[in-house]
Amino acid sequence: MLKKILEILIFAITLAMGFYFQWEIANFVFFILFIFLILHPIPSRFAAGSAIIFLLATAFLTVFKQNDLAETVAIWAYYLMIFTAMLSFGELRKEEEKDII
């Protein structure tokens, strides 16, 4: 019960911070996603796959001289790589704990 309340509180704080700092929508979405993945991790391969897709999109956009969009997509790719690293770290910890048991 306490965990549920804390999770709701965390999402409320996340929303409040987004409005307080007036983040752009994309940054805000990634921030919520980051918090969500801390609380409810998914397999890291999904985040890694998304990062690769965004990196490829960056290359295509650069070729077609859409530099501003390419820059934005590259930043998203970077966010996803951080997610991947974070999730991989969690998976490693889990495996280590399993091995110990």
């Binding site: 965990k3 804390l6 999770e7 965390i10 704080i13 996340t14 911070m17 980051f34 918090i35 801390i38 609380l39 991790p41």
Partner: peptide
Amino acid sequence: TERRVFFALVFL
């Protein structure tokens, strides 16, 4: 027991 909640709070 609730490490994830703790990490999320620290991150925020």
